[in-house]
Write a protein that binds this DNA or RNA. Structure first.
Lengths: 141, 141
DNA sequence: TCTATTTGTAGCAGTAGAAGTTACAGATAG
DNA sequence: CTATCTGTAACTTCTACTGCTACAAATAGA
């Protein structure tokens, strides 16, 4: 699964950045809060950078900050930025083509997969980073 | 691997069982179509058995068959039967409690997680095994 | 009752991807 | 110039799934 904890980490990091507005946060500081290694955070920030969600700066007093206001970033963007992107994997080894089911099942499943994924993104896009940040701040669920 | 290919395999196997109505299918035969090992299929059937989707029988001329009609089994049930069940994993290592974000982020994320998962199930529950089986049979997507 | 067959499951090796770590080049503020 | 940070490569460790062998238990049919 299993699933990826990348999304959770990304949201965590982005919430931290949202919290400290225009101040640059160091990967080391972020790693400390997320309880992982600074390089892991930098790798993650690299993905968020490519998706134009954060801006990083090298050198002394460098670090990362949000590329946009927290209310202009929605969670679907975050999901797409870090996710390999599929809810369930297709068959690891291609099913037998000699079997009437095996022959067509993959096409049907990948169609279903796309539909599910679209649903997830639709749901996530309703939340902005600002929304999420407020929930975290208020400690309310 | 990120996601699980269990769901795909489960749907494949169930479609095979739907196809052969009341006849018992052997794990070896199923494994051949799915292109994997018989033990892998038996492990999967074990999960589907627990979810009361299939019935298995040991001994000579044993095997597995559906526990209900294909139009009384929806894909959300299949998803729940085989999935550890989370779209994205929470933090692998618990975030720092000394940090105002780290303290609450997990609760917020797991709430979000539940909401997403509910959405997936809602979507999957619209399809019965019968629907899917027909799509596969007609080779149409 | 005996035999052949089939599931259920334990146990182990192989594999792939993620995470953790170390190291260092390049950028940059002061 | 120097101290500080990021970006990235390279390597190890960890973890989860897959594949496989082996065997006890169940059961149909002779």
């Amino acid at each position: 699964m299993a699933a990826n904890s990348q999304f959770s980490m990304a949201v965590h990091v982005l919430a931290m950045l949202a919290r400290s507005k225009d101040e640059n946060l160091k990967s080391d500081f972020l790693a400390c809060s997320v309880n992982t290694n600074a390089v892991v955070v930098r790798r993650l920030l690299g993905q968020l950078n490519q998706a134009k969600l954060v801006v990083s700066q090298t050198g002394a007093s460098g670090g990362s900050r949000l590329a946009r206001c927290p209310d202009e970033i929605n969670l679907a963007e975050v999901y797409k930025a870090v996710n390999c992107g599929e809810v369930f994997a297709l068959h690891a080894r291609a099913p037998s083509k000699d079997c009437p089911v095996g022959k067509n099942i993959e096409a049907v499943l990948s169609c279903l997969q796309r539909e599910i994924d679209k649903g997830i993104e639709e749901k996530l896009s309703r939340y902005t980073l600002q929304n999420l940040f407020e929930m975290v701040e208020q400690g309310k669920v």
